[in-house]
Nucleic acid binder design. Sequence first.
DNA 1: TAGTCTAAGATAGTGACGCTATCCAGAGCC
DNA 2: GGCTCTGGATAGCGTCACTATCTTAGACTA
Lengths: 210, 210
Amino acid sequence: MRISELSESTGVSVATIKYYVREGLLSPGRKLAERLADYDDQHVRRLRLLRVLRDVGAVPVGALKALVEATQDRRTTIHDMFGEACDALRVETAVPATPDEHTRELADRIVERAGWDQVRPDAPERDQLAAIIRVILDSGLRTDPEGAATYLPLVDAIAAYEIDQVDDSQDRETMMEQMVLGQVVLGEFLLSLRRLAHEHHSALRFDGRG
Amino acid sequence: MRISELSESTGVSVATIKYYVREGLLSPGRKLAERLADYDDQHVRRLRLLRVLRDVGAVPVGALKALVEATQDRRTTIHDMFGEACDALRVETAVPATPDEHTRELADRIVERAGWDQVRPDAPERDQLAAIIRVILDSGLRTDPEGAATYLPLVDAIAAYEIDQVDDSQDRETMMEQMVLGQVVLGEFLLSLRRLAHEHHSALRFDGRG
DNA sequence: TAGTCTAAGATAGTGACGCTATCCAGAGCC
DNA sequence: GGCTCTGGATAGCGTCACTATCTTAGACTA
């Protein structure tokens, strides 16, 4: 398949495909001649995945690159690959990257209470959680992070369901794809449902009372 | 309070404050003289809120403006204000804004099944949900949107808890602030917890099995 | 009261990001 | 033989969220 066909069958412009190749998001086509290369179904598939992640999840190109690199490491387990993928997808918030002792301790306590004993002690996500807790404490929200125990079984059930959806009869690449898509697309799905639920509960509580 | 003091007590640069005033995110100070204005605690508070929304939620400046405008409309109920706020905060995904009949129907069915009968029939979030369902169907995820009934009670519980946290003994502005912060900051909190839970469940299922 | 400082307001510039457009030289097709 | 298309390189563009500079009037300081 030539680059123009790849472009047509994915809806991504030739210029953008070249850009993605340059950035290492997509491997160059198999070289047939000095000025001719061949692209295959893997390229179509990868390109479709990249577009979904960008269009739905607004994943930055740099994170996509890290994701691709994580996928290509054939030595690691699926779990380690997924761990790297999650690190890549973790949104960088502009809050202090090194949280204070107290909030970090709160974060660790939450993880412990949830029973997530498989989470690495040095997982960057723990600091991320601590940073968010810091903001919750500072910002006049009444929500008590410790009291957020309410969330834990619910979130646990959601995540367990999502991991359960992955089809382990497939190859590594497909499984990674499913996990990453799950992380991003189902994350948006979840947030969308939550906004709808907010509207419903907000109406029940506040409608007509000013 | 002068602009330099406002800057110091919020950590936002004078140039940025001026920019926010220009963009209508922040009201100009009370004019004392041709070249002198006075800023008060409301400005400090507003500015802190804006920074949290941007730093944690990456809310675009345009959305912040819509949010401010929603807050300032004194005629509407809290619920209507919140509805406008949610519309402003809804992330624009680059997926077809006008989904096909089928996915829209799926979306409506989900809302109905969840029992969210207070959601306006013309809520833009319904189309947003439909667009995400379209992507799920197209992208090789095994998750069946209809089968996502699993999610509904969980999401409902989360949203109900969050709306319940709002302190209705406060004034309109404070309540709006709590709802918007809840939407954004607790949304990040939720996603962070979910990522941790993913790591845990991914380890249980895949660790050591390649 | 002279001199310095700071304010508000206007306008222009910056840097990151994600493309997009142009150019080039060679190969393929008709 | 002329047109199209290719991969590769490089430069440009549009948006976003600031940031910096300039001007001038008023405020404070000695």
